[in-house]
Amino acid sequence: MDTAGIIKITTYPNQNTFTPAFALAPTIYFVPGIGQVALAATGALVLGGGTITAGHWAYEKITSYFNNPRRVVSSQYGIPTSLLDGNGKVKLGSFKDKHGNTPLSKTSGTFKNGNLTIQKDTAGHGGRKLKKNGKRVASLDGSGKVLSK
């Protein structure tokens, strides 16, 4: 998926003149009960090709969804909500190594919880890698905050 591109903005209806403009590609979220919602770089909410404004029946449901960091992180990274605190941070104490240590008490090694594992990032970036079935799903800082994919 492209992250940015040139779009055409028609300056006069029914004429072939246009102004090129630069626009960032939207981030797509799946909102339960609504479906796919695009959050544009401008902050606009797009549902089914139309912009959602305050007062629309879906606006309150969508903004409520985005105001819950736990649900957003779970949806974006595929991390079960049971492993996230109220701020959307991964509960590091829920992961254990073969000796029963957690990432809170030990800074290196592999820690597991079901099909999820946490490993120290050995590429020199600091933090930890969160993997699901061996595939990286997120990078975490030392407190469990999701930094990126």
Rank of each mutant, 00 (worst) to 15 (best):
Asn113Trp: 00
Gly100Asn: 07
Ile118Arg: 04
Ala58Pro: 03
Lys129Glu: 12
Ile79His: 00
Pro80Asp: 09
Gly55Lys: 11
Val90Ser: 00
Leu83Gln: 10
Pro103Met: 05
Ser64Arg: 15
Lys120Phe: 00
Asp97Ile: 05
Asn87Cys: 04
Leu104Cys: 01
Gly100Pro: 02
Lys96Met: 02
Pro103Ala: 09
His99Ser: 13
Gly48Ile: 08
Val73Pro: 04
Ala58Arg: 13
Gln76Cys: 06
Leu116Asp: 00
Asn101Trp: 00
Gly55His: 11
Ile52Ala: 07
Gly48Thr: 10
Ile79Thr: 07
Phe66His: 10
Lys96Ser: 05
Lys106Ile: 04
Gln119Ala: 14
Gly55Ser: 12
Lys112Ala: 04
Pro69Thr: 11
Phe111Lys: 04
Leu116Gly: 00
Glu60Leu: 12
Gly50Asn: 14
Thr107Ser: 14
Ser94Glu: 14
Tyr59Cys: 06
Leu83Thr: 06
Ile79Val: 13
Val73Met: 10
Thr107Phe: 03
Lys129Pro: 00
Gly86Ala: 13
Ala123Gly: 08
Ile52His: 02
Asp97Ser: 05
Arg128Val: 00
Asp121Val: 00
Ser108Met: 09
Val73Lys: 00
Ser105Val: 12
Ile118Gln: 06
Gly93Ser: 12
Lys129Tyr: 09
Asn67Met: 11
Gly93Asp: 10
His99Asn: 14
Pro69Leu: 07
Asn101Leu: 02
Val90Trp: 01
Asp97Asn: 13
Ala58Gln: 15
Ser64Trp: 03
Leu116Asn: 01
Val72His: 00
Arg70Pro: 03
Gly50His: 11
Lys112Thr: 12
Ala123Cys: 07
Lys61Ala: 13
Ser64Tyr: 06
Gly100Glu: 03
Ser75Met: 14
Ser108Val: 12
Leu104Gly: 04
Val73Glu: 03
Asp121Ala: 14
Ser105Leu: 09
Leu104Phe: 00
Ser105Thr: 15
Phe66Asn: 08
Lys112Tyr: 08
Ala54Val: 13
Asp97Gly: 02
Thr110Asp: 05
Gly86Asp: 12
Trp57Met: 14
Ser82Met: 08
Ser64Ala: 15
Ser75Pro: 03
Gly78His: 08
Asn115Met: 10
Val90Leu: 09
Gly86Pro: 05
Thr102Gln: 00
Asn115Leu: 09
Phe111Gln: 02
Gly114Thr: 10
Ser108Gln: 13
Lys98Met: 05
Gly50Ala: 14
Gly49Pro: 01
Asp121Met: 03
Gly127Lys: 07
His99Ile: 01
Pro80Gly: 11
Lys96Ala: 06
Ser94Ile: 02
Gly86Lys: 12
His125Pro: 01
Arg128Asn: 12
Ala123Lys: 15
Gly124Glu: 10
Lys106Ala: 05
Thr122Gln: 13
Asp121Leu: 06
Thr122Glu: 13
Ser108Arg: 13
Pro69Trp: 06
Ala54Asp: 15
Gly109Asp: 04
Ala54Gly: 12
Pro103Gly: 08
Ser108His: 05
Gly109His: 05
Arg128Ile: 02
Phe66Arg: 10
Ile118Ala: 02
Gly124Asn: 10
Trp57Lys: 15
Gly124Ile: 09
Ser74Cys: 04
Lys89Asp: 12
Asp97His: 01
Gly55Cys: 12
Thr122Arg: 14
Asn115Gln: 11
Thr122Trp: 07
Gly127Ala: 06
Ile79Phe: 08
Leu92Gly: 05
Asn68Thr: 13
Ser82Arg: 13
